[in-house]
Simulated scan of single mutants.
Amino acid sequence: MTENSNGQDLVQTDAVEQNAAVSADAAESAAAPKKARPRKGIIAAIVAVVVIVAAGAGFWVWHEQPSFCNAVCHSPMDKYVESYTSNDPGKLVTQHAQAGDGCLDCHEAEITTQVSEVMAWVSDSYPMGEDGMLATGKEFANEEFCARPECHSMADIVDATWGFEGNDAKYNPHSSHQDNQLECGDCHKVHETSQLYCAKCHQLNLPEGWEAASE
């Protein structure tokens, strides 16, 4: 009887200890703070921000491409974008395109200019020529603009164009007797066929695709 009694006591003691351990674990689990789960609203907000940033970055990349210029403003920009992809050697835009230059490398995206252009387009108040080009009378292709440090060096251009296109070595359109009265745009046409001003008086070989300037 004594042995049975002792055995029962041991079993009961083990059961009590196990119950106590389980209760302690349960109490510890209840006391531990529950991990907060991300709310759906926060996740949705993060996704929205990522989408907006990606869309903005994509728009900015597109904004720097020639295709952006006439995506909406077909008139007057179609002719300009067409000339960019024409591979016409007589148009200066071809050399810029082959060098990897885009529209904004020359036409700087200043906010004031862009706003005025949008207003002119919306109000349909921009002058157009019969050739489908803008007829603003503005000419920015001058030495001050073209010979900037990040673009062209006039000294290098002068050195490289003595006897240009196989002409006599005494001829150089960038160092002529015109005493610097000519600007770059008098010969170099970006979106139209370039014209050699010197050929008004001199019989000269013309660069490929160029025309002799008329009187």
Score class of each variant (00 low, 15 high):
residue 105 D to H: 12
residue 106 C to W: 01
residue 106 C to A: 09
residue 106 C to F: 06
residue 107 H to S: 09
residue 107 H to T: 09
residue 110 E to L: 13
residue 110 E to T: 10
residue 111 I to F: 06
residue 111 I to E: 10
residue 111 I to P: 05
residue 112 T to M: 11
residue 112 T to V: 13
residue 114 Q to E: 12
residue 115 V to C: 04
residue 115 V to R: 05
residue 115 V to D: 05
residue 116 S to W: 09
residue 116 S to G: 12
residue 117 E to C: 12
residue 117 E to P: 01
residue 117 E to Y: 09
residue 117 E to A: 13
residue 118 V to S: 13
residue 118 V to C: 08
residue 119 M to D: 15
residue 119 M to P: 14
residue 119 M to A: 12
residue 119 M to L: 13
residue 121 W to S: 09
residue 122 V to M: 06
residue 122 V to R: 05
residue 122 V to W: 00
residue 122 V to Q: 02
residue 123 S to M: 09
residue 124 D to P: 04
residue 125 S to C: 08
residue 125 S to E: 10
residue 125 S to Y: 04
residue 127 P to T: 07
residue 127 P to H: 02
residue 127 P to N: 02
residue 128 M to A: 10
residue 128 M to H: 02
residue 129 G to E: 05
residue 130 E to G: 07
residue 131 D to C: 04
residue 131 D to Y: 00
residue 131 D to W: 00
residue 132 G to W: 00
residue 132 G to N: 05
residue 134 L to C: 08
residue 134 L to V: 15
residue 134 L to I: 15
residue 135 A to Q: 12
residue 136 T to Q: 03
residue 136 T to D: 06
residue 136 T to E: 03
residue 137 G to H: 01
residue 137 G to C: 01
residue 138 K to H: 09
residue 139 E to G: 15
residue 139 E to Y: 01
residue 140 F to D: 15
residue 140 F to C: 15
residue 141 A to G: 05
residue 141 A to K: 12
residue 141 A to Y: 07
residue 142 N to M: 05
residue 144 E to Q: 14
residue 145 F to A: 14
residue 145 F to T: 15
residue 145 F to V: 15
residue 146 C to I: 15
residue 148 R to T: 15
residue 148 R to F: 00
residue 148 R to N: 12
residue 148 R to Y: 04
residue 148 R to V: 08
residue 149 P to D: 05
residue 149 P to F: 01
residue 150 E to Y: 05
residue 150 E to S: 13
residue 152 H to D: 10
residue 152 H to T: 07
residue 153 S to D: 13
residue 154 M to V: 11
residue 155 A to R: 14
residue 159 D to W: 03
residue 159 D to K: 14
residue 159 D to G: 10
residue 160 A to W: 00
residue 160 A to F: 00
residue 160 A to K: 06
residue 160 A to G: 04
residue 161 T to M: 06
residue 162 W to D: 10
residue 162 W to L: 06
residue 162 W to P: 01
residue 162 W to H: 12
residue 163 G to S: 04
residue 164 F to W: 07
residue 165 E to S: 09
residue 166 G to L: 04
residue 166 G to V: 06
residue 166 G to F: 00
residue 169 A to L: 06
residue 169 A to G: 10
residue 170 K to L: 04
residue 171 Y to L: 06
residue 172 N to D: 02
residue 173 P to R: 04
residue 173 P to H: 02
residue 174 H to G: 11
residue 174 H to D: 10
residue 175 S to L: 08
residue 176 S to V: 09
residue 176 S to A: 08
residue 177 H to I: 08
residue 178 Q to K: 13
residue 179 D to L: 12
residue 180 N to H: 07
residue 182 L to G: 04
residue 182 L to N: 05
residue 182 L to W: 02
residue 183 E to D: 10
residue 184 C to E: 00
residue 184 C to D: 06
residue 185 G to I: 01
residue 186 D to H: 08
residue 186 D to I: 06
residue 187 C to N: 05
residue 187 C to F: 01
residue 187 C to Q: 03
residue 188 H to T: 10
residue 188 H to I: 11
residue 189 K to I: 00
residue 189 K to F: 01
residue 190 V to E: 04
residue 191 H to Q: 09
residue 192 E to W: 03
